[in-house]
Design a binder for these strands. Structure first.
Length: 750
RNA sequence: GGACGCUUAGUUCAGUGGUAGAACGUUCCAUUCACAUUGGAAAGGCCGCAGGUUCAAUCCCUGCAGCGUCCACCA
């Protein structure tokens, strides 16, 4: 027996070495598996694209969970003999990364991004991103992820940039990407536009002012944002409101705090007649709802607040003032003029930016949008023509709207992908949430006023007209200076292409043929809309197929008290520290067994400690079996097994049952049940029951040899059944058994 | 305001139309034994509440309560 089994299992001593052996074998790469004759070339493909962690620092428990679940499935499918590919990568996470670096620079050098300039800031971010990338990829290795590093991708590398620009151009040409003046969510702190999904609402107390614009103005209105009232161009009432019927359609000129306002009385069903006075001052430039009303009624839009959340006004007292100061000034003016009718405190939800905490200021700005409603006739994309001949088991459902025969929209593509069953979302109830989201979908604002990211591939002439779109600026015919759009793309635009930009798209590669659509997307439910839906959109549009056949959503990892792990609470558990202390195997077991699909996961150190005991249990099972079997070639012992005693029959039956259950659970993506079953059969059946029974059998010369064979057989079976969950200890044991030649457990058959 | 989910042992959670399950914790016993990280056993439950469907409901349906999440938004 090898020396190492004489003491307790020490994960730290073995895990790094084992990972190196795996990586150097090349078998994370499916083509290498085929080359070595371990996988059949025609074998069904099984593909997962790793959700790329942000290059904003280090791996957290959520990543560890994601890696664990995906690695279990990948190892299982590799052992099944499928052509198994798992592509790793990282995400540039534009806003998050830039904000992180800017914060550091501000702290250390007291400089803003404008002090550094675009080029210098980008240099600094690249350095940070590179370091962060290196940390993260080494941590992914520590967790034991058997992903194909030869195909590693970054959402902002050259290949992905080419894909992004190609995608942008194509959608622009189709009219699906347009530029428009919209009231968007402006973050004055981050100096950028943010999407609706990046807003968090905070409840605060606000003052609701009820006032009249002028003494001869007939309708009093209520507002919490007095300062925006100098930008009002209408007053809206409910069309059925009896009080105001006579005024609808009339126009009034008023002098309001040094500004001349032209106010039209309009009727709109959006107005709640029971709130305030039942009348609403319409500020088209600084409220999204108001902008819609203004569009319907052809009202002018007057911007009165700038990007720094300061006033723009003809009134010298107001101009350049912060919004809160302006609010006071106007309130005082109203009091002096005796126009202020009422002041009351109300609770109000204030929109703030998730990343910076800045209070959102709705502003009109020219932005780039993806139009999700626009109907278009899909071109038969090159990729789509080949779908019929694809090497995939499931028929590829065309995502075009059959009824309309020709026309569809991005929204319909997104809906149909799930509705038709081409994509299954697990747990199933998330489908409802998905459909609900799609029904309420608005144009997707894809431009961001930050510097880190894919720069919008649009060039303008001096007049600001678009002269070129795509990968390279084509020289404008005779026109003057050509300037690239200063903005960058929403980070989700590039990650939306992830399932196929990682496979060589827009080139028509063999890889796309073989590995797309991918088999499964495994990710947290919190990015169902940000990411999952947008991948469905892009894949449906560019390839006329779904990006993945199944979506498995896991929950948020929380601490023992059910709180989210966060830096500010200091309750985070670092997966790498844990792996260091108890082994990656133990961390994996603790995570997977707690992870029922879609439910949040509570984790505490004790649980992980418990699973370290489990790896040691397996270690001791091995020690016992090696102690009681003398052989130079373990594989031979493992060959044929027959049951002679009652205990033999029972244990073989238990193993057969366990194998069936684990297989079934993994196929059903009930990974936690599979892991618990492996644990149960190993500890309760093999260790507690059969090893105890074998002690007597080994003393009986008549059945001693037979019992040894059976023990050897059971050990190998147990190693295989456990390998997807706890790959390191099982591989280490397998490597240490007396084999004539030393195969890798990782590539053994299930 | 709208949607979705959860409620099962002291705790954390599985689970099923027919006698209620695990892990941890607790208590007791055993242990020179592959296991310092062991084994065996015990205690512990109106399966949130109220109706309904059913021969039979913890499970299916309806309502309610508490907790949680997401979405919208408050002029």
């Amino acid at each position: 027996m090898e020396e190492i089994f004489k003491k307790a299992y020490e994960p730290k001593e073995h895990e790094g070495v084992i990972y190196k052996i795996w990586e150097e074998s090349g078998f994370f790469n499916p083509e290498k598996m085929i080359g070595a004759g371990l996988t059949h070339e025609k074998a069904e493909a099984y593909t997962i694209m790793m959700p790329p962690p942000n290059v904003t620092g280090i791996l957290h428990m959520g990543h560890a969970l994601m890696l664990t679940l995906e690695d279990i499935l990948i190892r299982y499918h590799r052992m099944l003999g499928q052509r198994t590919l798992w592509i790793p990568g990282t995400d540039h996470a534009a806003i998050a990364t830039q904000a992180r670096v800017e914060k550091d620079i501000y702290k250390n050098e007291d400089k803003s991004r404008y002090d550094l300039g675009r080029e210098e800031l980008l240099k600094r971010i690249d350095v940070f991103a590179k370091a962060s990338h290196d940390t993260i990829t080494s941590q992914i290795r520590i967790m034991g992820a058997s992903c194909d590093w030869s195909r590693e991708a970054f959402t902002l590398d050259e290949k992905r940039n080419f894909a992004v620009n190609t995608a942008f151009k194509k959608m622009y040409d189709e009219g699906l990407i347009f530029r428009g003046l919209r009231v968007i969510n402006w973050d004055p702190k981050g100096q950028t536009t943010i999407s609706d999904d990046e807003i968090v609402y905070e409840e605060r107390e606000a003052t609701l002012y009820t006032f009249k614009y002028a003494c001869d103005f007939p309708i009093p209105v209520s507002t919490t944002r007095l300062e925006t009232k100098i930008g009002d161009t209408a007053v809206a009432v409910h069309p059925d409101d009896k009080r105001y019927q006579d005024f609808i359609g009339k126009e009034y000129k008023v002098s309001f705090c040094g500004e001349e306002l032209n106010l039209k009385i309009i009727a709109d069903r959006e107005v709640d007649p029971n709130f305030g006075t039942g009348a609403l001052g319409v500020t088209p430039a600084h409220s999204q709802i108001d902008a819609l009303m203004a569009e319907k009624n052809h009202l002018p839009m007057v911007q009165v607040i700038d990007e720094k959340a300061r006033m723009i006004s003809k009134n010298e007292l107001l101009n350049g003032k912060k919004v809160l100061e302006a609010r006071e000034i106007i309130a005082n003016w109203l009091r002096e003029q005796k126009l202020l009718i009422k002041e009351e405190k109300i609770k109000q939800n204030v929109a703030t930016a998730e990343r910076t905490g800045g209070i959102i200021e709705p502003l009109p700005k020219k932005q780039w949008f993806v139009d999700v409603e626009k109907e278009f006739v899909p071109v038969c994309h090159a990729g789509a023509t080949a779908t019929a001949s694809r090497n995939n088991t499931d028929p590829v459902v065309s995502l075009r709207d059959d009824k309309a025969l020709q026309k569809t929209s991005l929204k319909r593509i997104m809906k149909k992908s799930v509705e038709s069953g081409a994509i299954t979302i697990l747990p199933e109830h998330f489908s409802k949430i998905y459909f609900h989201w799609i029904d309420n979908l608005k144009p997707w604002c894809i431009s961001r006023q930050i510097w880190y990211g894919h720069r919008i591939p649009v060039w303008y002439d001096e007049a600001g007209e678009v002269v070129s779109v795509g990968n390279e600026p084509t020289s404008a015919k005779g026109s003057g200076v050509v300037m690239q759009d200063p903005d960058t793309l929403d980070t989700w635009f590039s990650s939306a292409l992830w399932t196929f930009s990682t496979l060589g798209w827009p080139k028509e590669t063999a890889e796309l043929e073989i590995y797309h659509p991918t088999s499964l997307l495994e990710t947290g439910y919190e990015i169902l809309f940000f990411w999952v839906a947008r991948m469905i959109l892009m894949s449906g549009y560019f390839l006329d197929e779904v990006p993945f056949k199944k979506v498995l959503l896991h929950g948020t990892v929380r601490d023992a008290k059910g709180r989210k792990m966060s830096k500010s609470l200091g309750n985070g558990i670092d997966p790498i520290e844990i792996a260091e202390k108890y082994g990656a195997d133990a961390a994996r077991m603790a995570l997977v067994t707690a992870a029922a699909p879609g439910t949040d996961i509570k984790i505490e150190e004790n649980k992980i400690k418990g699973y370290k005991h489990y790896t040691n249990k397996l270690w001791n099972i091995t020690r016992f079996i090696l102690d009681n079997t003398e052989t130079s070639d373990f594989a031979k012992l493992n060959e044929e097994v027959v049951a002679t005693t009652e205990a033999d029959r029972k244990i073989l039956e238990e193993f057969a049952k366990a194998k069936a259950k684990i297989t079934q659970s993994l196929n059903d993506l009930e990974i936690h049940l599979a892991a618990l079953e492996a644990y149960r059969v190993t500890w309760n059946e093999l260790a507690d029951f059969y090893i105890e029974a074998s002690k007597k059998q080994l003393e009986d010369p008549g059945i001693k040899t037979h019992t040894q064979k059976l023990l050897a057989h059971l050990l190998v079976q147990a190693l295989k059944l456990n390998h997807p969950f706890i790959p390191f200890v099982t591989e280490k044991i397998y490597q240490s058994l007396p084999h004539k030649n030393k195969p890798l457990l990782m590539v053994e058959t299930w």
